[in-house]
Design a binder for these strands. Structure first.
Lengths: 195, 195
DNA sequence: CTTTGATTTGAACGGGTGTTCAGATAATTC
DNA sequence: GAATTATCTGAACACCCGTTCAAATCAAAG
């Protein structure tokens, strides 16, 4: 018995990635077995190897895909006129984008140490690229006299850490809507770097 | 062959916890085996069970110990006169305390999902207790007209996320000393919640 | 110096791991 | 409708897992 009715590469491939993402987010990369992922897809473990060379590549592809999505979505934004507007755009963009894909965010932040050194370098490079976007905004604001931060690089790290933290506590059914959260965080970010 | 010269419970016990903490921080709870921990201590795997009933308790005890240390150290501080001074105290305390024990911090934030539900509840309760300390400071500041935050609870989460982020990038050999980092973050925190 | 009790070993338990692959099956092509 | 190709199964590979426990060893007590 093999190949149940209606099965296709185009269907199984994405389902493998979806199941892996969900299980990695829920239980952690090391705690999830290929057999678990396969079971979730409704297939035997061996079949997974039609879609990934190994477990490590599955993790890496998920994280790389997430970082690519992030940078692509950011690059697709319009360029605001002032540093102040750019910072507001970044704040709201970061909160929304991360809110929309909590599993990918969680995996990308938690499973860095389970990447091989080479794969880690790639993801780390992409992350730095994203951080550089905010740092550039802050530098422009300082140059224009709109912001006052002692160290733009560190301020960028601080702001990103603060914004990413939303994912740890925000619940859809909670007392605040996402726009309200955006507003609260934008207010804090604006003041934190204000001149 | 058993029990090599000079071995004692008082020595092996702490060494087990130290090895477990270091290995959990480095590779993650699920990826570390009892045999690895034992090997690090210089003992066979079976001997570990003189010091912990099981692997889960080892993780829980490390995390519980860390949270207890945190709350005890915070409680030992003097109570400042103004909300502004209290916030500065919290900011500097958090950065220093977390800087001093990066492994315990890392494990306590990364391995929450590897706790049993009951153990998770305990750790989560302690964490909330700590967050409540900051929230109380913010509320007092708002009541006194010194701070302006739309939502003290969320502001507390935001500040803590920002401060804890220091651990992800700070390096002893980096270009900034810890007092300098404290100053930069205090400046941002102060402004972020300012009236 | 013997006895006692704490400490550790080493082997075993049942079970799970990532990965490979020949053979079976189903969809597609001619 | 037969041949081809993509897809999947099921079993096997060598190895690692947390935990238990009788037996061995060592430190301390009498």
């Amino acid at each position: 018995m093999a190949r149940t009715q209606g099965s296709h590469s185009d269907i199984t491939g994405p389902r493998v990635r979806e199941a892996a993402l969900r299980l990695f987010a829920e239980n952690g990369y090391a705690a999830v077995s290929m057999r678990q992922i396969a079971g979730d897809v409704g297939v035997q473990a061996g079949a997974l190897y039609n879609y990934t060379p190994d477990k490590q590549s599955l993790l890496f592809d998920l994280m790389k895909g997430h970082m690519d999505d992030l940078l692509r979505a950011w690059a697709a934004q319009s360029v605001p006129e002032t540093p102040q507007m750019a910072l507001e755009q970044f704040t709201r963009f970061h909160i929304r984008f991360h809110h929309d894909r909590p599993e990918a965010v969680f995996v990308s932040y938690m499973e860095l140490r389970n990447l091989t050194p080479e794969n880690f370098e790639v993801i780390e490079g992409l992350r730095r690229k994203y951080e550089d976007q905010l740092e550039a905004i802050l530098r422009r604001g300082v140059a224009a006299g709109a912001f006052d931060v002692a160290d733009p690089k560190i301020a960028a790290m601080a702001v990103i850490a603060m914004l990413t933290g939303v994912n740890t506590w925000y619940r859809e059914e909670g007392r605040l809507s996402l726009p309200e959260v955006e507003q609260i965080y934008w207010s804090m970010v604006r003041k934190a770097v204000s001149a």
